[in-house]
Design a protein around this nucleic acid. Structure first.
Lengths: 253, 253
DNA sequence: ACGCGCGTTCGCCACTCATGAACAAAGGTT
DNA sequence: AACCTTTGTTCATGAGTGGCGAACGCGCGT
């Protein structure tokens, strides 16, 4: 997995600076330099370059990430057929259920949210497009991993670990693989407060015959509303139906 | 404006590679090398670095832009208060009018679309979030420039030029400044097939007392529907109302 | 089985970038 | 208003690194 190989240090530094800008919500040269433990002048040179290339902006003294990244970001997701195809389905699910509906894929061993739609009474979470999550503690992740070759799953768990997010998070590897079996049998996955207390989710994988699992869609809501018949059959059915539609449109269009 | 200064070549090259990936819709090492006129090994080193940093992905042999940029892109726009505040207003305008509603700001002398919402009968254009447009040929651009210091407008026109997009595009500088005067008087701006044949737009600026113009919102539609009373007063009024709401929420929240 | 085209590896030298210190500019404090 | 602090910017230099061409090996198509 780890291919050190010959790599361009300057590029790496520039990326770290951009990431630091996000982390610090915009920052000045000195702040960045101390945060990254780099000489001021180095940071300055990189910022100068990024500014010149119009990738960062100077907002009254402080540097911040520019909108050029918006173009790249939009491209990176519209590139995925799944996004374009699934989006309308996500929207109608949100309208039908009134809950929060998510679309995500796996990349580099983590879940990445591609798109979210909130229904009328949707919970307000920290989730946003582009956000990364561990796969083991989300319904989305389980749905995806249940249809991923076992060796790849092992590999992901090795590198990412299985940190406990709540007291309900599955942290044992055996238990997790049993859970994946159950997901495969059922056709959809549950998250019962495994990532956030008070939150329950249901997720269905999007699979295509030739390329395996492309991603997953999920519905998230408070435990109060996610229980009984609704949680056990109603929402799962809605999800599976939507997933089927997406799968068909993925292969035949 | 042009601050050459000491700049990091490697970073620039990496950015160019990413841009080329977008332009080519994903590509291999050789393809990129010939497109950018760089040695294969150089391109390879950069791709290796970007791949290692998880910014590009390898899709069965071809490299492409990864979802890490999605996070940066989302951040770059949610950073702008305007986006969060205006979004719901854009959505309701789209619902009310059934047309295409846009939100954009100025960056580096160009207009950047932040968000679009299409109503029931909205036209389908090439516009998408993150897209750049010339300011002189769009209603959005005029609305923004009308409230920008004249010297800055001159500067923008100098560097960006005023290319004709259609036969209706304003390409003369004097005519353009007169147009801006009219926009200021009216409180909103028009685009009468100046960017695309058959397309008309109305735009209202979003200004705040302390920071000047923050951006603009606009409604786009086919000439067939954008005429008469609707084009002259109905839509402008809707826009100005929405703009007012946004302006208030910008300053008091 | 062969050859072409691709991604990858290698090793070397020139050049670039990282560096710290010194300079300028801006803000806050007294 | 003059001071001092803090920040952004410039500069010159040497170490190291990234750019480069050529050579390698792999996979695909014929």
């Amino acid at each position: 997995m780890n291919t050190p190989g010959p790599t361009v240090q300057a590029t790496r530094t520039s990326l770290e600076i951009v990431e630091a800008l996000v982390r610090l919500n915009g920052a000045g040269v000195t702040e960045l330099a101390s945060d990254l433990d780099l000489p001021k002048s180095t940071v300055h040179n990189h910022l100068n370059t990024l500014h010149d290339a119009e990738y960062v902006v100077k907002d009254d003294g402080a540097y911040d990430v520019g909108l050029r990244f918006l173009k790249l970001g939009e491209y990176s997701r519209s590139r995925l057929k799944l996004h374009d195809v699934a989006r309308p389905e996500i929207d109608s699910l949100a309208e039908e259920t009134g809950e929060l509906v998510n679309l995500s894929v796996e990349e580099y061993g983590r879940g990445v949210y591609l798109y979210l739609a909130q229904g009328e009474q949707a919970v307000h979470l920290d989730t946003h497009a582009g956000m990364h999550v561990h796969l083991h503690c989300t319904a989305l992740g389980k749905a995806i991993l249940a249809h991923t070759p076992e060796e790849r799953v092992e590999e992901i768990l090795d590198t990412m670990g299985m940190p406990a997010r709540t007291e309900h998070t599955i942290t044992g590897r055996d238990a997790f693989f049993e859970e994946l079996d159950a997901v495969r049998d059922r056709g959809y996955a549950y998250d019962r407060q495994e990532r956030l207390d008070g939150l329950r989710c249901v997720a269905a994988p999007i699979t295509t015959p030739d390329h395996g699992v492309a991603g997953a869609i999920s519905i998230s809501g408070p435990t109060s509303r996610m229980q009984g018949e609704r949680f056990e059959t109603e929402i799962p059915d809605l999800l599976r139906n939507a997933a089927n539609v997406v799968e068909l449109n993925m292969t035949y269009s």
